[in-house]
């Protein structure tokens, strides 16, 4: 099934496109999806958490692909970005949300052309803008993530996500595979059993669940520095530890020392909350450390860009095959050389 059909069949309304690094190919992926949606007569809405569509990248000064849209599509972008777009548009709403490039405006495309997208930067404003795009008639809203930011892919904001990765991550293909696999693993963690989920949802704080169903709430301001206190409260009767907020290397290093580690499951809010050193994470998992999530993120596909703007590239076939091998069951698309084949 083609990617666009999967999105339609699952009734996903908001899709985030996040990159594991700058220049991982988010814009190419977005263009591909816009074209596919157009072929299927689906009205799409487009916005971005960063700035996209401009020809020259702000950070690396390398050339970037422009974004082409056609009549009937919806767009949320900042005023100055709109002035730089060649597509003819009709203004539907001024949102009051400000960015470096001016207020975010919602428009309908009247005539085919290129656009620059610069949408809201905070996850909360993004949620609002996506709602508005849907309100005006967008059947699917694509949100292009900024640089390597991933907060918009939280299930609280988008229904599913597409991960763009590629050669730009490292000159060493093994590292690209490892980093991509780690990210997909965090996103696709198994959801915790529903009765446990209900308990933690009610507590809604970092807490420890015991065999008998009782919970202990450590007196901490953040789990980032709360590892030691959490550790002291874990005992042989502990079954789950729920961390609300960021799960960082500092916290995991504290937990690593816990002698009951094998018997407990760590529960995260969702995959975007995990910030860990890959070696630490993998090392702990080998020792029997189990992690589950309150909310799973639907990873629809991983897209590949085998070329790095730093001037090196991978054999695209080899990259694709290797990625498929370490990510069985996930759709891998080389968007640079064409996307879905059938």
């Amino acid at each position: 099934m083609r990617l666009i059909e999967t999105i339609k069949d699952n009734n996903y309304e908001t899709i985030s496109i996040i990159g594991l690094a700058k220049n991982a190919g988010k814009t190419v992926t977005l263009n591909y999806l816009i074209e596919e949606a157009d072929n299927y007569n689906i009205n799409v809405g487009i916005t971005s958490t960063g700035r996209d569509g401009e020809r020259i990248d702000l950070v690396t000064q390398t050339e970037k692909p422009p974004i082409l849209v056609t009549e009937g599509m919806y767009l949320a972008t900042a005023k100055k970005a709109l002035l730089l777009s060649t597509a003819k548009t009709e203004i539907l709403e001024t949102t009051g949300i400000t960015t470096a490039m001016g207020e975010v405006i919602i428009v309908r495309i009247r005539q085919r052309g290129y656009i620059e997208v610069a949408g809201p930067v905070s996850a909360r404003d993004m949620k609002y803008v996506a709602e508005r795009l849907k309100y005006y008639g967008a059947e699917i809203v694509f949100i292009d993530g900024a640089i390597d930011r991933k907060a918009v892919s939280s299930p609280l904001i988008t229904d599913a996500c597409i991960i763009a990765t590629g050669a730009v991550l490292s000159r060493d293909m093994k590292k690209v595979l490892e980093k991509t696999a780690h990210e997909v693993e965090c996103y696709s963690l198994k959801e915790v059993a529903s009765h446990v989920k209900e308990i933690f949802k009610k507590v809604n704080k970092t807490s420890i669940l015991q065999e008998d169903g009782s919970t202990i709430t450590p007196n901490i301001v953040t789990s980032i520095t709360g590892g030691k206190k959490i550790n002291e409260l874990i005992n042989e009767k502990t079954t789950h530890v729920f961390v609300k907020g960021a799960v960082t290397s500092a916290l995991l290093k504290d937990l690593r020392e816990n002698k009951y580690l094998r018997g407990i499951k760590l529960i995260v809010e969702d995959g975007t909350k995990i910030f860990t050193d890959i070696n630490l994470w993998n090392g702990m998992k080998r020792k029997g450390f189990k992690v589950e999530t309150m909310n799973k993120i639907n990873v629809l596909a991983v897209t590949l860009n085998p070329i790095s703007p730093a001037g090196y590239f991978f054999d695209s076939q080899l990259l694709k095959e290797s990625m498929e091998k370490i990510l069985p069951g996930i759709k891998i698309l080389d968007v640079v050389s064409g996307g879905d084949e059938e």
Binding site: R149, A151, T222, F275
Partner: peptide, 20 residues
């Protein structure tokens, strides 16, 4: 581009802590 990776990690952690 270490500054970019560093700066985005900070925003992401702040979003994760619901503090943004």
């Amino acid at each position: 581009d270490v500054h970019v990776a560093n700066l985005t990690e900070l925003v992401e952690m702040i979003e994760a802590e619901a503090l943004r």
